Computed example of a mutant assay.
Amino acid sequence: MRTALVIGAGLIGTSAALSLTSRGVTVHLDDHDLDRARTAASLGAGTDAAPDGPVDLVIVAVPPAHVARAVADAMVRGLGRAYLDVASVKGGPRRELEALLRGTGQDLAAYLGTHPMAGKEKSGPLAATGDLFEGRPWVLTPTRDTDTEALNLALELVSFCRAVPIVMDADAHDRAVALVSHMPHLVSSMVAARLENAEEAAVRLCGPGIRDVTRIAASDPRMWIDILSANPGPVADLLAEVSADLDETVRALRALQSEDETARKEGVGGVEDVLRRGNAGQTRVPGKHGSAPRVYEAVVVLITDQPGQLARIFADAERAGVNIEDVRIEHATGQQAGHVQLMVEPQGVSQLTQALRERGWAVRT
């Protein structure tokens, strides 16, 4: 791949363009908002000038509702040798594209639907980074009709972005992302909505649990309306299952208020059931490097809000010979301090705790 055209200079399109330009590919940027294309170009993602002729790969990075028309327009105009999109829904746009191309002399051989499983709460070119996709799954949905050239160019793009290619059927992909992305986003938003009119005294008690659950609720609603509108069926099916669990859990909690001992026991059983099923589901979430999740222990260190605190902790952990597997930070309410949780292998807890205490850190496990 020597040349590419990115249509849609948002977070995903600009991040892909940054990755390609860093590998020496000449990238042309196009967006209906000229300022976005200019901004992306100013960040080093390519040029906002139109290509002189067909490029090797056209990357369509527009919302799902506009994918089919954008790809069809690019194909009819002959803008590239191969075409792919990066939208989060695959089945519907592909069927719509097939319908749009009827009678145009074009077919789907040069097209491949893809979806990089990466993103941020913020959107737009200013949020883009060249390493956004590094180590992340990038789904490819080829069919028997897909040209080898189109597939190879898509794989080259994934390689340049240092992502991990995963081949799936388009409709299977849509059901999967409904489960792991679209439905959780709506549930996160529903939980966050409870905070909108909550008393200030209650909101001040927010800790890492509520922050974890509501983090993705900060995303742009307009973007998510586009996504959910393109995949409503699978998401609605999953929410119906969640709704049934909620109804059962509400009944169980009400039973715990009963004066009848039998009813209370049934309530305990109902709550325990959903919690245990939650435990079982959580253990299936891939852990480090995509492997089965491992159990780590937390070494908790009190830190102040000053430059260099985290760097010092990491350096001291290195001297102790203990690898930090994950890091979480909990900020103290109303204070310039907080706790950093260093997740380590169980056998490293004692060694790290002793080393940090010897260097003056306030540590608890």
Rank of each mutant, 00 (worst) to 15 (best):
G80T: 03
D131M: 14
T114M: 08
D107I: 03
T141M: 02
S123G: 14
V86W: 01
K90Y: 00
L97W: 05
N197L: 11
T148W: 11
V180F: 05
G105S: 12
P184K: 07
L157P: 06
A99E: 06
F133K: 04
P142V: 05
L155W: 09
R136Y: 06
S188K: 14
P184V: 04
L186W: 05
R95M: 08
A110I: 02
E121R: 12
A154H: 01
P125L: 05
D174I: 01
S159Y: 14
E98W: 06
P137E: 01
T141S: 03
E96C: 02
S159V: 15
R162T: 04
A72N: 02
A109G: 13
M190H: 11
G92K: 13
A110C: 03
N197M: 11
C161W: 10
R102A: 13
L108W: 08
V139P: 09
T104G: 04
G130T: 07
A170H: 10
G105C: 10
H182N: 06
L97R: 04
E156M: 14
L126P: 13
P116Y: 01
P165T: 04
D73T: 14
A74R: 00
E149N: 09
V89M: 04
A99I: 08
A72H: 06
K120L: 15
A193P: 12
A87P: 00
A176I: 11
P137R: 02
S188H: 04
D169M: 10
P142A: 00
E196T: 14
Y83N: 03
W138P: 10
D145S: 15
A72K: 00
W138G: 00
A82S: 13
A87W: 01
R136C: 12
L97V: 06
K120G: 15
A150Y: 05
G103E: 03
P142W: 07
